[in-house]
Design a protein around this nucleic acid. Structure first.
Lengths: 370, 370
DNA sequence: TTGAAAGCGCTAACAG
DNA sequence: CTGTTAGCGCTTTCAA
């Protein structure tokens, strides 16, 4: 019963028509009712499935899209991926998954792999910068960034950066407008000092508003020594943090980890030990939040009595912690879905970027300064 | 600069040789040193990348593999996926991802999609049963199951089921041996009452040992009314639970949820309310564990004072809970990696299943019965 | 060692 | 409305 799959030729013969007719019928072209019916019947009977290989080769464009995330073990990227998959499925498109581990080299390799596969569209949470993505785009790929921009995209709001006109609300949510360079304006951060940024649409959360809200909240609680614990790709978030706390920023209170959980823990622990005077910390992602909770516990710091905590990402377990974590929620699933939509629509009108709203969800991990 | 990608023909012309020669050189065939060098140089210069489409079409077999998981938002499946990706990457194979939502229909659709793409190998955490997988296999797919077996695979140890010869230790870990049907023996559960189970290799955790250990541990703490909170695909785990607690099992203490978090919460909450006399619960997965913690808190049940909790899956946040959760750890990443290995090796020798060890990690969520 | 040629399954021109 | 035909980019006989 190991029979070869039926080809269009088999169907044509069995139905007594030409292959072109079969092709037409199956792709909704014109055909006499009776022919159509016969072909359909035969096709069904033979359990015929058109080979995407043949089709794609012929049409020199392959369906499907790539999806690159740093780490599927990070719940946020799981949410993002679910969003992409949902949209892709509804469009009948396969998605090729790649996990970059926040490593530009792996990412570049993955791009090469996609190219070989003939997949020329990719949604990426970028790890590398222009080095990786410039070539990819030149090679003809359509790319949409999600969650963050390439690391070498301008993200630093220098001391004294002006606030953009949109500050205060992610009012543009949904209207969608802008490419990477525009987004930086939208976001209120100054445009590139570098030559020309990648012209790629992106779906991002309104990190700036999210961070600002968190910092203000903490400030309102009396906190003055607020730290930021970031990871790879949190450039826009630190920038927003710097802006929110205002100059001069205490640089010792801004620390970065690499992508791993170990590194995150080390960074958190180091921060708490080197600056026992800090009273609050906001983390750039949930893995860092996890690390902060762990490190605080290990050092016998009580949350929120000794240290207040705001974590980026509203993951299910944030509620399980005790106290439950106050978080900056960003819509991971939506982000993925919208990115996929952008990708799918990239053919027709020029895709425009979108900035999704964040929300400060107050639970129990922040308290008044003591 | 939107140039078409170079084809083998371009390389051949530029190098002044025939396409066949280029093909040979690039796939390590024989060629005179100088020819080879020239071809290689030209190929590099043109940034030539062989089209997987062309190759696959010609060879009627496509590289790559599918990966189906129920939900990427579940950290365990994230780990599993990372494992698969790691192995696939080292083999240079692309992986096409599908999220089934524990829905057999979606799963079947995804199988169809793979078939169309010409992807004939898939690693699946199966949602459907023989209905889905029988046809897939007949259609010529190579499939490897991970984490669980199809729902209609025999998994119920009836009352009085004998213990298998391997009971007590996952001693066969690593040696790998058996197909689905064998595994059920390995696992100590009676073979199918149904005709003929799918003959598919699988990578599973030693659920039986894991559950047994947990139940014994709870028993040792004095618990007698132990509940099991399961979800889709936890058939083997309930079976093991039933066996571990021994007949007669209090059926009200065995409750199931569907895949969603809401359903999990409802089930947990319902369980606690309908049986306030229970003193311990073991959950079949981390999402259910999450639900149990939440429901307990909502009902003002203290863990572990009022109720002890053991959760399947050691996810990072288990340690963040308070008290930290005692868990049955299973190696998600390894599971994925091994499944991919099995898949890759499926060509050569007949793949054999493997049973991975579980470990009871005692933290703070269990206490003596009160 | 090398090149020419025949397809893999499909769609799109172009005739009939 | 329908069939024939020419490839898409590649590997693989089969000769030279």
């Amino acid at each position: 019963m190991e029979s070869r799959r039926a080809t269009i030729k088999d169907v044509a013969e069995a139905a007594g028509v030409g292959v072109a007719t079969v092709s037409r019928v199956l792709s909704g072209g014109s055909a006499s009712p009776e022919t159509r019916e016969r072909v359909l019947a035969v096709a069904a009977h033979l359990d015929y499935r058109p080979s995407a290989l043949g089709r794609n080769l012929r049409q020199r464009r392959t369906g499907g899209m790539g999806l690159f995330v740093p780490d599927l073990t990070d719940t946020f990227y799981g949410q993002l991926a679910e969003g992409v998959l949902a949209c892709a499925r509804s469009a009948g498109e396969p998605v090729v998954l790649g996990s970059t581990g926040d490593d530009p080299e792996q990412e570049a390799e993955l791009v090469g792999m996609l190219l070989e596969q003939g997949v020329d569209r990719v949604i990426a949470v970028p790890s590398g910068g222009t080095d990786t993505w410039g070539p990819a785009i030149k090679a003809g790929m359509t790319v949409v960034f999600a969650d963050r921009l390439p690391s070498d995209a301008p993200t630093d709001a220098g001391p004294g950066a002006r606030l953009g006109s949109l500050s205060g609300s992610p009012s543009d949510e949904g209207s969608g407008a802008a490419t990477v360079s525009d987004l930086m304006m939208l976001d209120g951060l100054p445009p590139a000092s570098r030559a020309r940024p990648l012209d790629v649409p992106a779906v991002l959360a309104d990190d700036r508003a999210g961070i600002r809200t968190a910092v203000r909240y903490l400030r309102g609680l009396g906190h003055r020594r607020i730290a930021f614990l970031g990871g790879p790709g949190h450039g826009r978030r630190v920038a927003a943090f710097r802006e929110a706390v205002g100059a001069p920023v205490d640089e010792d209170l801004v620390v970065f980890a690499t992508g791993s959980r170990d590194s995150a823990y080390a960074a958190a622990s180091g921060l708490f030990q080197s600056r026992p005077d800090l009273t609050a910390v906001v983390t750039g992602g949930n893995v860092l939040g996890e690390a902060a909770v762990l490190a605080a516990r290990e050092l016998d710091l009580r949350v929120p009595r000794d240290v207040s905590l705001v974590m980026y990402d509203d993951v299910p377990w944030a509620e399980l912690c005790s106290p439950p974590l106050t978080v900056i929620a960003q819509p991971g699933r939506d982000m993925g879905y919208r990115a996929a939509e952008l990708m799918l629509r990239a053919g027709s009108r020029r895709p425009r970027s979108v900035l999704l709203p964040t929300e400060l969800i107050v639970r129990g991990s922040c308290g008044p300064r003591h």
